[in-house]
C-alpha cells in the first residue's frame, strides 16, 4: 500500500475536520476496524495520503438502551459485541443474526458497525486494480456483460454491484436512523435513505454520506410490541462468505394473520432492497402456501438477472419462504 500519515483525532468534530470537504477528494480516509479499508489499501483501490483513525474518539463503542426500549449503537461497536449482546439477541434477533453472519470470528472481532455500513463493494471487477470499472472512475461496468454470478438482479444500472453489508438490510427493516456528524454539526438520515442506487446518486459511492461526514451512531426505534424478526443469509461457503442473497424480516402477527411486515432483501441489489409491495400483499393474510408463493413473486418482480445470476431469483424466493415460516 502507499505510505500514509496516520492521524488520531480524539473528538468527532476534530475527526470530521480532518476529512476532505470536496466530493472526489480522496486525500484522506476514515479508519475503524480496518477489515475493509486495509484490503482496499493493499490492492491500491484507494491511495489516501492520510488515514484518520476513529478509534481514539471515546464514547462510540457503546450499546445503549433508552428508557423507551430504543437502542443506540455506537459506530465503533464491533460486530462481535453486537452479536453477543444478550438483550439484542433477545429483543432484536434480526440484528444479532446479521452481525453474527458477517465474515469469520476474526473479522467480527475487529470489524465495526460503522465500517460495515460504509464498506465498499466486493464485485470482482471493482476489487481488481487492473479493471478500471465504472466504480473506479472508468466508463464501463464490466460485470454487466462479463462474469456476474455475484452481481445485482434488481436496481442495477449503470453499475451492477450488490451492497455487501449484512447489517444494512437488517437496520433498514428495523427502521433505524443514522446519526451523521460533520464539522457543521449533526444530521439524521433513515437507514433506508442512506444507501443509494448507482442510477440515483454518485456512481462512485453507495451512500449519501458527504466526504466529511462520519457515521457516529445508529438509533433503532423501540419496536411496536409483538415484533418477531430474523435475518436469513445464504452463503456459498458456510465457513465465511458474503451473501449470495439474504432476507431481513420484521413481522407482527395477529393470531394466524399478518398484521404488519417489513421485508428487505440483501445481496441482490446495489442497496438494501425493501419490498414494500410484497409487504402490503401480506398484510391481513395468513401465511399459507399461496401467500408464501405470492409474496416471493411480488418481492422479485422486476428482477432482471444477468447471464450468470438468474439463480438469485429462485434462491431469494426460497429464503423468503424459509424466513416467514420460521417466524410464523
Amino acid at each position: 500500500m502507499k505510505a500514509f500519515e496516520l492521524q488520531n483525532p480524539v473528538t468527532l468534530a476534530e475527526a470530521a475536520r480532518l476529512l476532505p470537504t470536496k466530493e472526489g477528494d480522496e486525500s484522506a480516509r476514515l479508519l475503524a476496524g480496518g477489515q475493509d479499508l486495509l484490503t482496499e489499501l493493499k490492492h491500491h483501490l484507494v491511495e489516501p495520503d492520510r488515514i484518520v483513525n476513529l478509534k481514539h474518539v471515546p464514547g462510540l463503542d457503546a450499546i445503549e438502551w433508552g428508557a423507551d426500549g430504543g437502542l443506540t449503537i455506537g459506530a465503533l461497536v464491533t460486530l462481535q459485541d453486537l452479536a453477543e449482546d444478550e438483550r439484542v439477541r433477545r429483543e432484536l434477533p434480526i440484528l444479532a443474526e446479521a452481525a453474527e453472519s458477517v465474515g469469520s470470528p476474526q473479522i467480527r472481532a475487529m470489524g465495526t458497525v460503522g465500517g460495515n455500513l460504509n464498506q465498499r463493494p466486493r464485485c470482482w471487477y471493482y476489487r481488481n486494480e487492473h479493471a478500471v470499472c465504472l466504480k473506479k472512475g472508468g466508463t464501463e461496468c464490466f460485470a454487466y456483460e462479463g462474469r456476474n454470478k455475484y452481481n445485482a438482479i434488481l436496481g442495477g444500472g449503470p453499475s451492477y454491484i450488490v451492497h455487501p453489508s449484512d447489517l444494512a438490510p437488517a437496520l433498514v427493516a428495523l427502521g433505524a436512523q443514522l446519526m451523521l456528524a460533520s464539522p457543521d454539526g449533526q444530521r439524521q438520515v433513515a437507514a433506508e435513505d442512506f444507501f443509494t442506487l448507482p442510477s440515483e446518486g454518485n456512481v462512485l459511492r453507495e451512500t449519501v454520506l458527504a466526504p466529511n461526514e462520519i457515521l457516529a451512531r445508529i438509533v433503532v426505534p423501540p419496536p411496536a410490541s409483538g415484533m418477531k424478526s430474523t435475518y436469513l443469509k445464504f452463503q456459498e461457503r458456510s465457513s465465511y462468505d458474503f451473501a449470495l442473497s439474504a432476507v431481513a424480516v420484521c413481522i407482527w402477527m395477529d393470531g394466524k394473520k399478518v398484521k404488519e411486515v417489513r421485508m428487505v432483501l440483501g445481496a441482490v441489489a446495489p442497496k438494501p432492497w425493501r419490498v414494500k409491495r410484497a409487504e402490503a400483499l401480506l398484510a391481513g393474510r395468513e401465511l399459507d402456501a399461496d401467500a408464501l408463493k405470492a409474496v416471493g413473486e411480488e418481492a422479485l418482480r422486476g428482477a432482471e438477472p444477468l447471464a450468470e445470476n438468474g439463480y438469485k431469483v429462485p434462491l431469494t424466493k426460497g429464503l423468503i419462504v424459509r424466513a416467514l415460516q420460521k417466524l410464523s
Binding site: W124, Y125, N128, H130, A131, F142, E145, G146, R147
Partner: peptide
C-alpha cells in the same frame, strides 16, 4: 475464473 474479454484472472 477469467474475464474472457479483459483477460484478467478474477
Amino acid at each position: 475464473v477469467h474475464d474472457p474479454d479483459l483477460g484478467l484472472m478474477l
